[in-house]
Design a binder for these strands. Structure first.
Length: 347
DNA sequence: AATACGTTCAACCGCACCGGG
DNA sequence: GCCCGGTGCGGTTGAACGTAT
């Protein structure tokens, strides 16, 4: 009962013996990569070509890392999974030396359970809601209705928002849980990884955007949800904004920060609702370009980190290229980093 | 010591996609 | 447009191993 690609041959199935491994390795060292269906014959293996491919990719390849996943790798898997879902091959691309199968197994056997035990739905990365649905109460203002050091005003959100209130609430709840605070004032995080973890929640439905490094007159939109990329989007502040997403500050203003490539400037946009139930207005205040620092790491004004790779306090590394496209443009990240950094300088 | 139960992970299967004819 | 072989992906399986009873 072989696969169609090798149905004529008598094929062996199940675990690979060391002899078979050796044959496959020898084949690759002498012939290099050939068509998989031809491999069994050339290598002298009574295996299906597909089986050879799998054995090579998942086990025999020389560039495989093997061994336990590091904390950093685990964090990366969770982060990318939040955005991409069960696209294991895509996730594995963020983990050099790891295969999709390995990542998938690790997810199913470890991470999933861990997330559940922490109260997160591993599919959505949202906090499991208790008495779930928070009714909208006729669009009435509900500031401070959530136990959070950050509060959000539902009426400040315009009707075309792409982020559900539940999602925002989950994020804010997570922020509250993970940010130590005194009387509602967040305390400075000594470790950037701690900060990052506290922000690592559901942005799945956002459409992250990033500026095009090569050509600042263009922006790149990456729509993870619909799995499509579109370059050459004309740059504007809205292109870079987290779509209707932000943190309500103490004055109940919803402030979103971002970089507007058309103006080459840092922008702060404030949502001010004129009247309850009415459509919100966006006021744009162009600020000076600035570079700010967190734990000696420089951020420029579009949220991009000057270096592609940083080392956290615990010695682990993180490639920020991904965060740049996935989280940074969400505003919330730069916003919080900014405010925390400010607190640090104030101390 | 024997058995049951739980976990891990290598491997399999079916499907989707792609390119060539 | 259709067929077909090759490839890659994600869900699932089951042998091997670990732990509890």
């Amino acid at each position: 009962m072989g696969h169609h690609c090798c149905s004529k041959q008598k094929v062996k199935r199940g675990l690979w013996s060391p002899e078979e491994d050796e044959k496959l390795i020898r084949h690759f060292t002498t012939h290099g990569h050939t068509c998989w269906s031809s491999v069994p014959k050339l290598a002298g293996l009574q295996r299906c070509g597909k089986s050879c491919r799998l054995r090579w990719i998942n086990y025999l390849r020389s560039d495989l890392k093997r061994g336990c996943f590091t904390e950093q790798e685990e964090r990366t898997i969770i982060d990318v999974h939040r955005i991409l879902g069960n696209r294991w091959a895509q996730i594995a691309k963020h983990l050099p030396g790891r295969t999709d199968n390995e990542v998938k197994n690790f997810w199913n056997s470890c991470i999933k359970k861990k997330l559940i035990s922490q109260g997160f739905d591993p599919n959505t990365h949202n906090l499991f809601s208790r008495a779930t649905t928070t009714t909208h109460q006729n669009n009435k203002k509900k500031a401070n209705n959530y136990t959070s050091v950050f509060t959000i005003d539902e009426t400040s959100l315009s009707s075309n928002k792409q982020v559900s209130m539940d999602m925002i609430k989950a994020s804010l709840a997570a922020l509250s849980t993970n940010f130590p605070h005194t009387n509602g004032v967040p305390e400075y995080q000594t470790s950037l990884s701690q900060l990052y973890e506290s922000l690592a929640y559901n942005y799945k439905n956002l459409v992250p955007t990033t500026t095009n490094i090569e050509n600042p007159n263009l922006a790149t939109c990456i729509d993870y949800k619909n799995q499509s990329n579109s370059n050459n989007v004309s740059p504007s502040s809205s292109c870079l904004n987290p779509t209707e997403f932000g943190i309500i500050n103490e004055n109940c203003m919803w402030t979103v920060t971002g970089f507007d490539p058309s103006n080459n400037a840092h922008e702060e946009m404030q949502i001010v609702h004129e009247q309850e139930g009415e459509q919100v207005q966006v006021q744009e205040n162009i600020c000076q370009e600035e570079v700010y620092k967190v734990n000696d790491y420089e951020f420029n004004n579009n949220g991009r980190i000057a270096e592609n790779n940083i080392t956290y306090d615990d010695g682990s590394n993180f490639d920020f290229e991904f965060v740049d496209s996935a989280l940074m443009p969400c505003g919330i990240y730069t916003n919080v980093v900014n405010s925390i950094d400010q607190l640090a300088w104030d101390c």
